[in-house]
Each structure stands twice: as C-alpha cells, then as structure tokens.
Amino acid sequence: MTTTEIKSDTEVPSAADVQAVLAIVATATMAKPPSPPSTIWEKRVERWQGVIGILVLAIMITILTLAGLAVPVKVKLLYEVAMILLNLMLLLCYLMCFGISLVGISFLWRLATNPYALFLQHVDLVSQFDHPSVDALNQCRKNALQYVLTHYKYQRLGYERRAGMIAGAIEKVGLLPALAGLIILLSNLSKAGVTIGLSDFIGPVLLSFYGIGVLSAHMTHRMDRVIALLEYSLQLKK
C-alpha cells in the first residue's frame, strides 16, 4: 500500500466509497443464507408454516378492517365476524408455533445424536455462500468499511432495542417457555372469571408479539453475520 493510500484510509471516506460498501452490505443483508440441513418432513412443516403465516396476516388485516367499520357503523354482526376470525387466527398462531417447536425439537435431537456433523455442514454452506461478499468487500477502501461498520452496528443496536420494547427478547426467554406462560396466563384469566372476549383478545395479541420477537431475532442474526463479514474484511487490511 502506498503512502497516498495509507493517508486516504485515515481520512473521512468519500460518498462514492461509502455507497460501494453499502451496496455490497445491502445485498449480503437481504440475501437468504443457507438453512441448516433439514429432513424432508421438516421442510414440509416449514412450508406449511409459511402458508399459515400468510393466512394469519390476511386474517389480521381483515379483522382490523372489520373493527374499523364496526365502530362508526355500530353493526353487531361485524363484531361477531371479527371475533370468529380472531379465534381462527389464534388457532393458526398456535399451529404455527407448534410447528416451529416440532422443527426445533427435531433439529436438537439430530444435533444431540450427531453433534458436529450438522454444525460443520452448515459452516461449510455459509462460508461458501458468503465468500463472494467477502471478496467484494476486500476491494473496498478500509476507511469506507470502518465508516459503514460503525453505522451498521449503531442501527442494528437501535433496531434490537426498539423491537425489544415492543415484543421483548424472545431469544432470552425461549419460545416454548413463552408459550407455556401464555397458556398459564389464559388459564388463570379463565379461572378468575375474566370474560371470554378479553381472554380471546389477549391470546392473539401476545402471540403476535411472540411472532414479532421471533422475526426480530431472525433479522438481527442476519445483521450479526454481515457485521462479522465487515470485521473480517477490515482484519484483512491490517
């Protein structure tokens, strides 16, 4: 590296250099990394989870629309239909969470019976997947990499905090303990004489929060992977 290049790397990067890094980072962030090796039935369960997720989203939009119409129009039928859809959404959310739990338990069982094979296969897949991104980042200037890494880390931390304020840190609690706590809560509400409508409302709301927490954990995991790629690219330039 020449004296001019060293001096350039200690200065504020140009907008063009920053945009070049950001383009690579954006592609790496949005690209879907390889999933851990899974069995045929696990893949089928995951596909059904995707279908159920779309149905839940459609029902949620319908419920919000009916609720918005029921308030000014004051038609009891709209409220009753919304409650039926709410119960249906609750059932679908339970099925989706149950599917997630089944896949997780199956994966843990395979991991326990052959603890290193799945891990090493996944490492191999991800390392091959990320190699083009690392190669592209290595062509960028060091000061631009540092600048983007600083802002990327800051935004990732802010995103995690905002999601945590809404849904909590589901990765710290665990999905199964959270579902067990929800069942206990609804059971206690029922024993305390709380109306069915209120308990039916609380269930889907909490499940929605759990869904947001799972999605947030998945997104931050992708962000952490990109941060690792940026840090590795910076180490290559030392």
Rank of each mutant, 00 (worst) to 15 (best):
Thr2Gly: 14
Thr3Trp: 14
Thr4Ser: 10
Glu11Thr: 06
Ser14Tyr: 04
Leu22Pro: 01
Ala26Tyr: 04
Arg44Ile: 11
Val45Trp: 05
Val45Asp: 05
Val45Leu: 10
Val45His: 07
Arg47Glu: 13
Trp48Ile: 09
Trp48Phe: 13
Trp48Lys: 13
Gln49Phe: 01
Leu55Cys: 13
Val56Tyr: 06
Ile59Gln: 08
Ile59Tyr: 13
Met60Gly: 13
Thr65Lys: 10
Val71Trp: 09
Tyr79Val: 11
Tyr79His: 08
Ala82Cys: 03
Leu86Ser: 10
Leu88Phe: 08
Leu88Val: 14
Met89Gln: 10
Leu90Pro: 00
Leu91Tyr: 12
Ile100Asp: 15
Ser101Val: 12
Val103Cys: 03
Gly104Pro: 00
Phe107Ser: 12
Leu108Arg: 15
Leu108Val: 05
Leu111Val: 06
Tyr116Cys: 01
Ala117Glu: 11
Phe119Asp: 07
Leu120Gly: 00
Leu120Gln: 13
Gln121Lys: 09
Asp124His: 10
Gln128Cys: 06
Asp130Phe: 00
Pro132Gly: 01
Pro132Asp: 04
Ser133Gly: 06
Asp135Leu: 11
Ala136Lys: 10
Ala136His: 07
Gln139Ser: 09
Cys140Tyr: 01
Arg141Gln: 13
Asn143Asp: 07
Ala144Gln: 03
Leu145Cys: 02
Gln146Pro: 00
Tyr147Arg: 09
Val148Asp: 04
His151Leu: 02
Tyr154Thr: 02
Tyr154Lys: 12
Leu157Trp: 07
Leu157His: 02
Tyr159Ala: 01
Arg161Cys: 04
Arg161Asn: 04
Gly164Ala: 08
Gly168Leu: 02
Ala169Val: 06
Ile170Met: 08
Ile170Gly: 01
Ile170Asp: 00
Gly174Met: 07
Leu175Asp: 00
Leu175Asn: 04
Leu176Thr: 12
Leu176Val: 15
Leu179His: 06
Leu179Lys: 06
Ala180Arg: 11
Ala180Cys: 05
Ala180Met: 12
Leu186Ala: 09
Leu186Gln: 08
Ser187Leu: 11
Ser190Val: 08
Ser190Glu: 14
Lys191Asn: 15
Gly193Trp: 03
Gly197Lys: 11
Asp200Asn: 15
Phe201Val: 03
Gly203Lys: 13
Gly203Tyr: 14
Tyr210Leu: 11
Gly211Met: 10
Gly211His: 06
Gly213Trp: 00
Leu215Ala: 14
Leu215Glu: 09
Ala217Arg: 03
Met219Arg: 13
Met219Ile: 08
Thr220Trp: 01
Thr220Ile: 05
Arg222Tyr: 02
Leu234Thr: 06
Lys237Ser: 05
